[in-house]
Structure formats: structure tokens, C-alpha cells
Design a protein around this nucleic acid. Structure first.
Lengths: 166, 166
DNA sequence: CGAATAAAGTTGCACCTACAACTATTGGCG
DNA sequence: CGCCAATAGTTGTAGGTGCAACTTTATTCG
């Protein structure tokens, strides 16, 4: 079967998307690492916990919300636990399951680091785009996510991301 | 100074983009790893070399085209050299510099793995989008890249990405 | 009820990446 | 010419991630 190569427009769009894929994570990571000592993924984990009821989730649910595999989340949880930002304890309802909960220190960490992170996202992404582009981006990412993760098994619903500032 | 939080539209767009950032690299990596034993970044390095004159570039130039830091590229080059896909040799004009060249084996590897990779990109990205979305995506990624990498120091020009099929 | 299967996590290992430190060479400039 | 800053690249190390193997507990079903 013959390969259907990309035409000029497709190629340009893809090469630039690939560049964003390569560069943007580094931009997110280095700001958070510098200002908070966290990777973007670690921040994301804390942020998801911060808006959960009781600031607690089951590992599997958290893995889905953060688009991570369970082994990956398990390693990161270990690290965050060493840092005193989360704590894990067995789920009373299901002895197989583990709950993970934000500690007061972890909650404070999220509060402290959220403004800088949001400013960074604004500076490098949101403020670079027109309202029409924001809207188009939503549609584009939606379409791609449906191909990548058809039944949205990796995200439940797409909910708030920034911490609740109580 | 007060934080300017994201409104609903901005937040939705950002959360989805973050999801793509998290999931898409895994999709690219696992197809290439399975079918070619390469990471996406390794493939990208080989692809860039495949279309350079003499299939040769200076390390710094290749690092710019692949959006990588020099240390990162140096490690990857070592690995690709161990695999017999590239070779490095000192630049005659500048004794500080190192040239990196695709070997015949490396060239063959790119030829063999390109169709599967392109099919994967089509399946998960390009074919999910309308022509209008492709066009919008180009504009959006362009705007973001200008913020992330203002003087395009990390990319010279955005050129072909798929290997030349001679 | 009891065996088989599936689900939930953890762990180990190999590889990848960032960052800092280091070597070697070049180019400027007094 | 000779010193000093800048450039090119490599290496070491620490931390992050994927994958496979493993343990434990729940669920299914004969």
C-alpha cells in the first residue's frame, strides 16, 4: 500500500506542531522548576488534587485526570510524598486501591505556585492568540484528542485546571 | 501584582492543549519504537540529516533544527552512533566543531520507517482536522513559537520534515 | 464455595533529558 | 603577540518515564 505523504499545508502545520510539542513542555517545566521546584506534571497532579473533594482521589482516577499511566503516577506520588506534598493511604472501600491526598504543605505549594504558572501560560500561549484562535484551538485539540483517546478514558471530563483559590 | 486568571474559554483551550502535549508524544514514540526501535526525537534527527547536503550537518545546526540543546543532542548522537545509524567526525574548517553524518544504514532506516510514521501522524492529527483547521493550526503554532522562541534561534526555517524519497 | 480472571498498585530496570562542570579551540583587541 | 571572552562540544549525575514483572485483592462463574 502506497504512502500518502503530507502536502505543503499539512506538512507546515505538522512541523510547527511538532516544534511546539518539543519546546513548550520545556518552557512550562523550567518556570515551575525555577520558581517552585516542581515539574509541570507534578504541578498538574497537585492542582488536580487541590480541586477534588477532600483534596483526595484514588490513584486510578488521578492517573486518568492527568493523562498518566499508573506506574508513572506511582513514581511521581512517591516523590511528592518524599517532599511532603501528598500522602497515600489505603482506600477503606477497596483494599486494592490507594487514595492520595494533598497535605496542608502541598495545598500551600499549589497556592503559591499557581500565579507564576498562569502568568507563564498567558505569556507564552494565551496572550499570543486572538479570541478566534483560542476558539479554533479548542476545536483542534478536541478533534485530536478524540483520535488519540477516543473514549476519553484518560480524562473523564476536561475540568478546571488552576487551583481553587479559597 | 494581581494574577489574571484564565476565563472559561481560555481555560478550556489550555487544558486541552496541555492534554495533547501530554498524550501526543507518547503516541508518536510508541509507534516508532514498536515499528522501528526509535524514539520520535531520534527519528526527527535522522530525518533532518536525510535532507541535508551530503546528509551531513554540524552538531549545532542539527541541534537548532531539532529544537534540542547541545548536551541532549550529544547524548542522542552517541546512541545513534552505537546503533550504526550516524557517524561523527571533526569539522575541517573549525577544530571545535563536529560534523554528524547519516550512514547508509541510517538512510535506509529513515526510508523504512517514514511511511509508518507519516501514516501515524495522519491518523492521529492531520486526518482529524478540516482544511480550515489545518490552516488555523499553522497560524496558532506560529504565534506560540514566536513567543517561545522569538528569534527562531531554535529552528532556522521550518523546512521539510519527511525524508526525501530519492 | 473455589478456581480463574481481572483490577489496582508497586517495583526494577533501561533509556531519555536537564543542568552544571569541564575541555578545547577560536576570535577579538590592547 | 598574548590574554580573555565566547563558541563548540562532551561528560557526569540526578531525576523523570515507559515497559514488563510481580503482589495483593476483588469479581466472576461453574
Amino acid at each position: 500500500m502506497d504512502t500518502e505523504w503530507l502536502d505543503q499545508e499539512e506538512l507546515t502545520a505538522w512541523v510547527r506542531l511538532a516544534a511546539v510539542l518539543e519546546l513548550l513542555p520545556g518552557v512550562l517545566d523550567s518556570q515551575l522548576r525555577r520558581d517552585a521546584g516542581l515539574t509541570h506534571f507534578q504541578y498538574y497532579v497537585l492542582a488536580m488534587l487541590s480541586e477534588a473533594p477532600e483534596r483526595t482521589l484514588r490513584m486510578t482516577a488521578l492517573a486518568a485526570q492527568t493523562h498518566a499511566t499508573l506506574p508513572r503516577l506511582s513514581h511521581v506520588a512517591q516523590r511528592l510524598e518524599d517532599l511532603g506534598l501528598v500522602e497515600r493511604f489505603p482506600c477503606p472501600q477497596d483494599a486494592r486501591a490507594t487514595n492520595i491526598r494533598l497535605t496542608p504543605t502541598g495545598w500551600q505549594k499549589v497556592q503559591d505556585s499557581a500565579p507564576g504558572h498562569v502568568a507563564n501560560v498567558r505569556q507564552h500561549v494565551i496572550d499570543a492568540l486572538t479570541p478566534e484562535q483560542i476558539s479554533a484551538l479548542t476545536g483542534i485539540t478536541d478533534a485530536i484528542l478524540h483520535r488519540i483517546d477516543p473514549d476519553a478514558s484518560m480524562s473523564a471530563t476536561y475540568r478546571r485546571y488552576d487551583p481553587v483559590v479559597s
